[in-house]
Design a binder for these strands. Structure first.
Length: 572
RNA sequence: AGGGGAGUCGCCAAGUGGUAAGGCACCGGAUUUUGAUUCCGGUAUACGUAGGUUCGAUCCCUUCCUCCCCUGCCA
């Protein structure tokens, strides 16, 4: 079924690039079964429902790709709904950022943007209905008393002394709460379910609390705000969501979700069939932390440079680092979805980026750790034009050119004075090809007091220009000529933590921060990079994938971020 | 006996009564002016454990083990 409606496996971004084949999974099976039975008349409506209280991270990306991807594959729609029911934590700033990132990932929600706060009137009216039916009551106990009376995991709770207030009294009290006659925390509206339920979520859950706080969208219209379980189920039903996907920790909330909807459907206040809540496991990534609290702490304590620090697993950070939307969609597809707890290695995310970029990224040469090479048999002051394909996989991308001259830079690690076995780059007396240029031979070197090469004196073979069809040698290394090279700051990133799971280890996760997660160097770049823009990925040949930093890079003062290195199969 | 979930290759993940898909990683080999890419080939007598049912079990039943979630007026 799904294979017939399959459009773009890795999401609906529509961009070219590697795709993982969408695997069968338990959610697709449920949808297929619903489609077969005609439950939702073949419709698939999902939703991504963030609370606008923080920035999106790679874990959210999994959910976004899942919800939008499924809707897309089944010819349905996915709503972006802000779950903005708690004004003390939320802000428009977060809302804007979330919208920007969902779009960046390649998903569209123009016609499908919703707010839980748009349902406040209806939610209030339904709450009155629950009160009238004797299914909800205003509890005047303090938060502490309520907690004490909730019981424990193994002991039942005890009924509130206010549990049997009349519907009239409850209606009156609830109205007073709404009108602002009661202080925060002094009264609360609870569903009247079962204080002895083995499922604690069913022990008269709170559904409306008093918050004399301005809401970023409804202003001061309200001072009572509905809570998650109550709001979410109703919002899903109002929007005619068919499949409501959430993470595993909400499994125990499903009975409540179903109960609330069942009452309202029975009363003819909500349509049938109700949406089905389906839970899947969260994404855990090694060598990083994902909780909002820790991300916030890293930012606030200055351990990283903001929410979009390229070392952060926030979508803003990943974008700035140079990750592409396609790579994240590919990653989400590869990781799959199930109810088993998944621990994914950072390397898998990096792999997805390489796979996405290899086919499309422009190439350029850049020397990150330069050592000077003087080609003694090349006349000083002269130069020769060399060229190379912008993308070897795509002739249409054209060619770039750069000069070969007497003085060039090569990567320090591409030269070894005393080579180990198997090293086939430049060595004393040996030859190597300057990629896209000529074969050179190391004649002698000049060293500093510490024994490091400061200048390599070489000769070149004029008959070996790239493309001339002449002889060749085993090694080919990248280089940049001083005459037309440009210098730029390059930021080299490594994982933020040096242990696989900084979260659950003993002690403070901050003690596991990798002190070398950022290294800044001044590199020599080939001239074609002079106009590099953020959002355009380059492969620095033999080095990795880099992108101009979207905030710090300026024409004439370029700053590049290394998103990921190239795979390095060389083992000494 | 509090309730609810999960355990299939190093990491993910299909299969769900008929004799273990796929991806990533890894190991070979070919091509290569990126030690990249690409391409070929290899990689679970095995599905947490112990029993049972069956001609036959990863799939059904039972036992046990391990891990995760739930005692917010957060979502």
């Amino acid at each position: 079924m799904s294979s017939l409606t399959q459009v773009s496996p890795a999401g609906n971004g529509g961009k070219d690039g590697p795709k993982a084949t969408p695997a069968s999974n338990f959610i697709r099976q449920i949808i297929d079964a619903d489609n077969a039975s005609g439950k939702h008349a073949g419709k698939v409506v999902t939703r991504f429902p963030p609370e606008p209280n923080g920035y999106l991270h790679i874990g959210h990306a999994k959910s976004i790709c899942l919800n939008f991807g499924l809707a897309n594959d089944y010819g349905g729609v996915c709503h972006l709904r802000f779950d903005d029911t708690n004004p003390v934590k939320e802000d428009v700033e977060y809302e804007e950022s979330i919208k920007e990132m969902v779009e960046w990932l390649g998903f569209s929600f123009e016609k499908n943007l919703y707010y839980a706060s748009d349902y406040f009137d209806k939610l209030y009216e339904f709450a009155q209905y629950f009160i009238e039916r004797g299914l909800a009551y205003v509890d005047s106990q303090s938060a502490d008393e309520i907690r004490a009376n909730r019981g424990t995991l193994t002991e039942p709770g005890t009924n509130s002394p206010f549990r049997d207030r009349s519907a009239e009294e409850n209606l009156c009290l609830f109205d007073e709460m709404k009108r602002g006659l009661h202080a925060d925390g002094s009264q609360i509206l609870r569903l009247k379910l079962d204080m002895a339920s083995p499922n604690i979520n069913l022990r008269d859950p709170a559904i409306y609390r008093i918050r004399h706080t301005e809401h970023h969208r409804t202003g001061n219209t309200w001072c009572v705000y509905p809570m998650y379980d109550y709001t979410h189920s109703i919002s899903d039903a109002i929007e005619r969501i068919t499949h409501s996907l959430c993470t595993l920790e909400f499994e125990a909330h499903r009975p409540l979700y179903d109960w609330v909807l069942a009452q309202l459907v029975d009363a003819g206040k909500l349509p049938s069939p109700s949406p089905q809540q389906i839970e899947f496991s969260r994404l855990n990534l090694s060598y990083t932390v994902m909780s909002k609290r820790k991300l916030l702490e890293l930012v606030e304590t200055g351990l990283v440079n903001g929410w979009d620090d390229p070392r952060m697993m926030t979508l803003a950070g990943l974008r700035r680092r140079g990750f592409t939307p396609g790579s994240i969609r590919l990653f989400a597809e590869r990781v799959g979805v199930s109810k088993a707890h998944q621990w994914i290695d950072m390397a898998d995310l990096e792999r997805a980026l390489r796979d996405d970029l290899d086919a499309s990224a422009k190439r350029a040469m850049a020397v990150l750790d330069p050592v000077r090479v003087v080609i003694e048999n090349y006349p000083d002051g002269e130069f020769e034009e060399c060229s190379a394909k912008v993308n070897p996989h795509d002739d249409a991308a054209g060619v770039r050119s750069f000069k070969f001259a007497r003085e060039v830079f090569i990567e320090r690690e591409d030269f070894m004075e005393n080579p180990v076995k198997g090293f086939f780059r430049l060595v004393p007396g040996g030859e190597v090809r300057l990629r896209h240029g000529f074969i050179i031979k190391c004649e002698r070197i000049e060293k500093d007091a510490a024994g490091n090469a400061t200048t390599i004196f070489a000769s070149y073979d004029p008959a070996t220009k790239s493309g001339s069809g002449g002889r060749n040698v085993k090694g080919a290394i990248h280089w940049v000529a001083k005459i037309d090279g440009i210098q730029a700051e390059v930021r080299l990133y490594d994982r933020l933590f040096n242990v696989e799971n900084p979260d659950s280890g003993e002690g403070d996760y901050k003690t596991y921060l990798n002190p070398h997660s950022l290294k800044t160097v001044t590199a020599w770049l080939e001239p074609s990079l002079a106009n590099a823009k953020a959002d355009v990925s380059y492969q620095f040949e033999r080095n990795g994938y880099f992108t101009a930093d979207r905030v710090d890079s300026k024409p004439g003062a370029l700053v590049f971020n290394r998103a990921v290195t190239l795979k390095d199969g060389w083992k000494p």
